[in-house]
Design a protein around this nucleic acid. Structure first.
Lengths: 334, 334
DNA sequence: TGATACAATGAAAACGCTTTGATATAATGT
DNA sequence: ACATTATATCAAAGCGTTTTCATTGTATCA
């Protein structure tokens, strides 16, 4: 059995209150006493029980993170960011992934609510505003990542619009492409929508058209980029450039293009979004937009901890856009 | 404030003991009473406090996972496997990553030992046998993943040797390459060592030589494959095939080869190990060995839970090799 | 009908800590 | 010298559960 605070107290010849004070550096303790206590702690290899501590102090020093149940390295970066921020503050990290099965019942929310965590970070999951608000009402701060449900909840998002604009302007202004197509993401999510809006705006500003048949539906996953590209290639007037809502699809689109015997970027230019590791390895290397994924996680965790330690008073800005930056490689024609 | 067991008890007109029994389905409770209690629970939206429960029952229903602090999608798969096994058993998952900074003091071990978790899974981290044994002695089962320190600790490993043999035999027996080089991993880790041993054995069995200058040191990371390949290309007698200890380096080696104006696989064949997502996207697609990463995580977690529920009695086999399988693509010459 | 078993519940003792209020001792001021 | 104030410590009351033991009420048996 591991040593308890009583064992330490007995060995040091003090009360458990004093041991607690030494351990937590609270109040003042006579130097001699402190030394005796520390010695006893060392000798017994004492470590305060986290559960008991949490129960007594109503603070668990634990952060909860919920991520979607997808096989996407993308989220690993979020996890890293959150983990690093948490562990820097000496917080533990409790992770739950939202599986397709339990999406409806949101088990993890219960899991976490049971006094397990001091705050939660929700990343890209499906969740209703009510649930979030309900949890916040119970005093558990929540920070959202890549998940915009408005309603005055602290949220960290990548600036999809300006990233989209950056890459769109590159295509239109630098390369002078006039026929640009877009491959959307799943159900046309807000992310995908923003990126499309950026493209549309840039084209409009330059008096260019974005016909409906140049917008093809994809689902962010591998195959869909290929399929979507097929459609575009079958058009009587092929686009000169294709903007895919993410790199995965862009890379797949490239395969479809090559299979037709066309060259990239000479015949058709391709750009993506995300800047996944693979993007720099395909040939030609994919021009894309870098997403600050790690940073999103880090900032979100950081803010969550901040809210905890600030009595959850008003933490000013409710929605933070983190900058995205175009990564110009070769697939755009550069 | 969230409702406690007292609130429920009062509302249902019973004692807290009865509520506890209903919640945990322990002992028998009169159907009518149970109904009343359940009703109260529903009305108050009661959820038992995990900390209090853990403290009283000495079980946290939480699994601890420690992963290295590297930016490697590889580990994300381990996490997924562990998470899925844990959540299937209604266990929460506590994650800590071993940062370079804290590697020496192993903070997470303390973090977890403080009664936080019922068992731990350690994946690919640097850790001393003593520490592990110390923790096990305190009654916390540990399962290792991709981390072989012997000593009767349950361990899940990918079968590096047989995977290495598979790919080596493919190179030697099918393609009849005679001059095969090897690029090692960091500090020549056990993994890398096993893969090399496999190659060496296969070559030997076929009366082929593996000269020292055909074994070049890498470090598993991006650049090192490139550097190592340079060395090999500068040799007076270039190898016909290169076996890199992981895909990352193999892909980098391919770049080095192409930069010299040589063709893959015509001039030099390249094979890797891991089967990372990128492997199928490079051109030519990389022949490699698939690692059951997700499965490693899943099995490890599963075993950890099994040990918990079996009174930690003898769980038979101490070291489990999970099969790896060659994935033949194009870079080998097929 | 009285003794006996069983079912259903309650009361209270852990679990290991934090934190408050009380107490004893030492230092300071008059 | 005595009252006052700081300082250092202790004792005990939570925190929200689980779990054991005791108690009551009801059905079963001789």
């Amino acid at each position: 059995m591991a040593a308890t605070i009583f064992d330490v107290a007995k060995r040091a010849g003090v009360s458990i209150g004093t041991v607690s004070r030494v351990v937590n550096n609270r109040d003042r303790v006579h130097p001699d006493t402190r030394e005796r206590v520390l010695k006893a702690i060392r000798e017994l290899d004492y470590h305060a029980n986290a559960l008991a501590r949490g129960l007594a102090s109503q603070e668990t020093a634990t952060l909860g993170l919920v991520i979607p149940q997808v096989n996407d390295p993308f989220f690993f970066q979020v996890v890293r960011g959150v983990e690093e921020a948490a562990s820097a503050a000496n917080y533990a990290l409790l992770i739950a992934s939202q599986s397709r099965l339990t999406a409806s019942e949101h088990r993890y929310l219960h899991l976490f609510r049971r006094g397990h965590v001091d705050a939660m970070v929700l990343a890209s999951i499906e969740v209703h505003v009510h649930e979030v608000q309900e949890i916040m009402r119970q005093g558990i701060p929540i920070v959202l990542v890549q998940l915009d449900i408005g309603k005055n909840i602290p949220t960290f998002l990548a600036d999809n619009y300006s990233g989209g604009r950056g890459i769109a302007e590159h295509l239109v202004l630098e390369h002078h492409y006039r026929r640009v197509a877009f491959i959307t993401g799943t159900n046309h999510t807000p992310d995908s929508r923003e990126r499309l809006r950026a493209l549309r705006d840039v084209l409009e500003e330059n008096n260019l058209d974005l016909p409906a048949h140049y917008i093809v539906q994809g689902d962010y996953l591998r195959d869909s980029g290929y399929q979507a590209m097929q459609q575009l290639l079958n058009l009587s007037e092929r686009p000169e450039a294709v903007f895919a809502a993410n790199d995965q699809m862009a890379i797949d689109a490239m395969m479809a293009i090559r299979e037709r015997g066309l060259r990239i970027p000479e015949d058709i230019a391709v750009v993506g979004f995300d800047d996944i590791p693979m993007a720099s390895y395909v040939s030609p290397p994919l021009t894309t937009v870098h997403q600050p994924v790690y940073e999103l996680g880090w900032h979100a965790a950081h803010m969550a901890l901040e809210i905890i330690n600030s009595d959850q008073a008003m933490i000013a800005p409710r929605k933070m856009l983190l900058p995205t930056s175009p990564v110009i490689r070769r697939s755009c024609g550069c």
